[in-house]
Deep mutational scan, measured.
Amino acid sequence: KRPMNAFMVWARIHRPALAKANPAANNAEISVQLGLEWNKLSEEQKKPYYDEAQKIKEKHREEFPGW
């Protein structure tokens, strides 16, 4: 399985609240909304998620060399 990128790290945190706020929305609609919200963030706001994604990527590389 591929390691999460910065957007996926961010979305994992924000998806539950968005789903709760929009109970009639299906998963595809929630994903679209998450994408729109992510694109509104500044690079500075995204930086912690890029940092976390890098850590996940490095850990994945250690656990699965050659993947």
Rank of each mutant, 00 (worst) to 15 (best):
K1F: 05
A19W: 06
I13F: 05
Q45I: 02
G35I: 02
N26R: 04
A6W: 00
V9A: 10
P23E: 05
R61K: 15
N22I: 05
K57T: 09
L34E: 02
K59F: 09
V32D: 13
H14T: 09
L18T: 02
E43V: 10
E44K: 10
E44L: 09
N5A: 05
A19K: 12
N39H: 07
Y50P: 00
S31G: 12
I30E: 03
I56Y: 13
A28C: 06
V32Q: 05
E58W: 07
S31H: 11
E29W: 08
K57L: 09
R61I: 12
A21S: 10
S42W: 01
G35W: 15
N5G: 08
L41T: 00
R61W: 08
G35M: 13
W67R: 15
K40N: 15
N39V: 04
A17R: 15
F64P: 13
K46D: 00
V9K: 06
H60R: 14
P65Y: 12
K20A: 10
Q54G: 12
I30K: 01
A28D: 12
R15K: 13
E29R: 02
K55D: 14
E43Y: 08
K57Y: 15
I13M: 12
W38P: 01
K47D: 01
A19T: 10
M8N: 06
A25Q: 07
E37W: 04
H60L: 10
G35C: 14
K47F: 03
A53W: 04
N22D: 03
K1A: 05
H14Q: 10
E37K: 14
K1N: 14
Q45C: 07
E58M: 13
I56L: 13
R15E: 13
A11W: 01
K20T: 08
H60A: 14
Q33I: 15
K46G: 01
V32S: 14
I30F: 02
V9R: 09
Q54M: 15
Q45K: 07
E44R: 08
H60T: 13
I13G: 04
M8S: 11
Y49C: 00
R61F: 13
R12W: 04
V32T: 14
N27V: 07
L41P: 05
E43Q: 07
W67V: 14
M8I: 08
M8R: 12
Q33P: 00
A21Y: 15
H60Y: 11
N39A: 14
H14L: 00
A19N: 06
E63S: 13
S31Q: 14
E58H: 14
E52Q: 08
E63H: 08
A25G: 04
I13W: 11
P65G: 10
A19H: 10
H14A: 09
I56W: 15
R61C: 10
H60V: 11
G66P: 10
L18Q: 05
I56Q: 09
L18D: 00
W67Q: 15
K55F: 06
I13R: 09
E63I: 09
E52K: 03
E63P: 13
G66D: 15
P3A: 11
A17W: 10
Q33D: 04
D51M: 10
Q54C: 07
Q33E: 08
E58F: 06
A21V: 06
K59Q: 11
P23T: 05
K55H: 07
I30L: 13
